[in-house]
Design a protein around this nucleic acid. Structure first.
Lengths: 241, 241
DNA sequence: CGCGTTCTTGACTGCTTTCAAAGATGGTGG
DNA sequence: CCACCATCTTTGAAAGCAGTCAAGAACGCG
């Protein structure tokens, strides 16, 4: 990490949580205090190992991480991207175990997630965050199962844009993408070679541009048309299963 | 449905839940009583519509259902199969909404899921069931994202076998599969034509046989070897995220 | 027995992968 | 400030897995 996480950045990350549920002043302060206790990790470091006990849940304050599974022969499937403001390892059971590995994709900063001891509203917040994550898993299944390579990439980029906005990162039409094409490929069930070709083809078609870790959506309407992206499940509070 | 759901069948379905958590006598009775209130639906009927409010959660007692999303152009992705003993629409938030449609794949019988009012152990049971469902979603992403057609089918069949066993349906090597090849295709991100070819190829190779709605695993060791099926996440209680 | 659904098969197409190698990029140390 | 190295991106050619289209066979239900 080039510079220690700035306080303002941390607060931006918490904004996602504040938008997810109505918190009392007590709980708000609890989160703000927790965010002072920053833990930093380098890219590629493992946050949880699959099958290992989870001692502590975290809030991601800065950087990107992912939930991932590795197959015996080395194939890798990224299941879910964790962005600033996301909860890592939050669980509502005793002696929780990590169902998947969680690894840092970039240098990251995170803080412990406060226990929802007596606080009803904090528990609701965590449930809401969990429901939102389930929505992303469902979208991910549909994306990988039924969309073409181009559709997958567009659909995924639009989702990422909508997730970054509430934490103050980029705009809907231009935002950072600090991951390699291989990482994108492992998330979308493609090869990095094909991701590369598709990105170029979409640039030629005037749809979007990915360059130097930045995404520019050139034709938002066409992008939405070409993917099935419609559900605005990003910052909206999700209640349901 | 050819015959009304037999009481004994209902109890078999509940066995999954009994194995998932240690319940007090009170809660056990609550479930057994609830299971008397049987609702029946025909194949293809919708249990929940995507986006609609969930008034009531159910326990599936008999038959198969699935969580599914339909794309604008008609493509269909089955996200998760619901088997006897599974909870449908169980949620821990107020005013829950169905994130996905749920439809009956066969004729089904279900009953209302008792509210976990003051009961701590029933709430734990539901959380555990939910965690298990999340494990299946994660497996589904990996399956569809990174496995070949043959691997997907084998991995999926082995998972189904392990899920049916605890509710007393079939054995690990022979069990009913009351869905069309098109349904399998829509779950695994394939076409029905290709599912058909793969099933025949696997039969020729002496791996397994699917015929008349029954699956016979002919070479279990080879099947496990050829898929990445290893995690025994079926009846085991899952604690974690 | 007849009809609709599901399964099966063949030929052909094409999206995506594979393999390999060259180019770009960025960080590090001399 | 530049050389160097590791990582990442880009490109081409060829192969393969899975999809598409179409039609006939089998099955199950009424």
């Amino acid at each position: 990490m080039t510079s220690p996480a700035a306080t303002s950045t941390e607060v931006f990350a918490l904004n996602r949580l504040f938008q997810l549920a109505q918190l009392g002043e007590e709980d708000t302060k609890l989160l703000l205090v927790a965010a002072k206790d920053v833990r930093e990790l380098r890219a590629r470091e493992e946050i949880f190992g699959e099958g290992e006990p989870i001692k502590q849940a975290f809030i991601l304050l800065e950087g990107w991480a992912c939930r991932v599974r590795i197959l015996r022969d080395g194939r890798r499937q990224i299941l879910h991207f964790l962005l600033p403001g996301d909860l890592i390892g939050m669980c509502f059971q005793n002696d929780p175990t990590a169902l998947t590995s969680v690894m840092a994709l970039t240098d990251v900063a995170m803080c412990p997630a406060p226990q929802p001891c007596e606080s009803e509203s904090l528990a609701q917040l965590y449930q809401s965050s969990r429901a939102q994550e389930e929505e992303f898993l469902l979208r991910q299944i549909t994306r990988v199962g039924r969309l073409s390579a181009q559709e997958r990439i567009i659909d995924w980029l639009l989702e990422i844009a909508d997730r970054l906005a509430p934490v103050g990162i980029g705009s809907t039409d231009k935002f950072p993408l600090p991951v390699t094409q291989e990482t994108i490929a492992d998330a979308l069930g493609l090869t990095s070679v094909h991701v590369n070709r598709m990105l170029q083809s979409m640039w030629r078609d005037g749809l979007l541009r990915v360059r130097n870790g930045m995404v520019t959506i050139l034709d938002r309407a066409a992008c939405r048309q070409l993917s099935d992206y419609s559900r605005s499940a990003s910052s909206r509070r999700i209640t349901g299963v």
